[in-house]
Design a protein around this nucleic acid. Structure first.
Lengths: 182, 182
DNA sequence: ACCTGAACACCGTTCAAGT
DNA sequence: ACCTGAACACCGTTCAAGT
């Protein structure tokens, strides 16, 4: 009975995306601190160090994972310029919040992320705030502020307090409106 | 030459505070993810598992560490009711920000903290916002919102952008003022 | 109660080798 | 290029034992 040892060598069944899918599944099922290189490798059926064939290190995997999450957020409801600007911010905030709440601990994955999807969301916010009457500089500061509020609210929320969240967004938008009308 | 082995037994030279002092030193020198049980133990000169004589687990050490940080923030400039309420919020925000920037990665230590010092800061914010004309419910939501903004701003700041920070605080306070005057 | 050494069950990452 | 096994340098935590 020759041992059925899995021998080294290419399998061609895996891809960068397969790694990220496994990482996303671990994130949804177990939370951010259980997204490990070894856990991902185990889930896709390779040795832990084989992950380094696809990504240079764990930080790169987490960066890709953050981009996966952000890619699910943007849609017509935020980009349609005919809708009222406050509605568009509320829609973006709601969708981002829903995505983050579905993935425990995912907030910190987004904090240092600056990939294409992060930029797309920021660009959308910039155009919304321009519609609100803010100049370029104020729109940039305002977009950052909205991001901070969304990420911070979820990170510090003891319970899933939707009311508090909506109220906070409205106070912030009032502050930006006041600035636009200065 | 009898081996100078350190034998087990009480030393009576250590305390809970000595552990926290070591943790704070590691935090300031190396950042939050280098605050380890083994690193603390090494710094105070005991075996890693001896730390568990003083704290039940690492989470308890980090909780104590967060309280240490918060204990340095509050002073007269925030609690003096004769000062304008906006100045008092700016002062609190500035001090908290300075404390967090001096300790890399410390923001996440505060996110799930709810000790005496955290409550004291929240109580101060509540009374400031009451002075601003907010009712009890709005003051509670507003205090949470200010906390979120401070912690979030520091967590997401790419550079040490003091201007952006001050601007954000002012937009937020404008929003709260608008609500108070409704 | 306070401490030690040894161990357990994990990490991320590197290295040498096989296909 | 893609993969394996073994190893290295870490973690937090538990257990049995010594004072």
């Amino acid at each position: 009975m020759g041992a059925a040892v899995t021998r080294p060598g290419p399998r061609r069944t895996l891809s960068e995306q397969a790694i990220l899918d496994a990482a996303l599944a671990l994130l949804a099922e177990l939370g951010a601190d259980r997204v490990t290189i070894r856990g991902i490798a185990n889930r896709v059926g390779i040795a832990p160090n084989a992950v380094y064939t696809y990504f240079p290190d764990k930080a790169a995997v987490l960066h890709g994972l953050a981009e996966q999450l952000l890619g699910r957020v943007l849609d017509d409801r935020q980009t349609d310029a005919r809708r009222p600007w406050r509605d568009r911010v509320h829609s973006l905030a709601h969708d981002l919040r829903a995505e983050l709440l579905a993935h425990p601990g995912s907030v910190r994955l987004l904090l240092d992320n600056d990939g294409p999807n992060a930029r797309a969301i920021n660009a959308t916010l910039l155009s919304v705030l321009a519609d609100a009457g803010l100049d370029q500089d104020a729109a940039a500061r305002g977009a950052h502020l909205v991001n901070v509020l969304i990420l911070g609210s979820i990170a510090t929320a003891n319970q899933a307090a939707t009311d508090q969240f909506e109220w906070s967004i409205d106070r912030l938008l009032d502050g930006l409106s006041t600035y636009a009308a200065r």
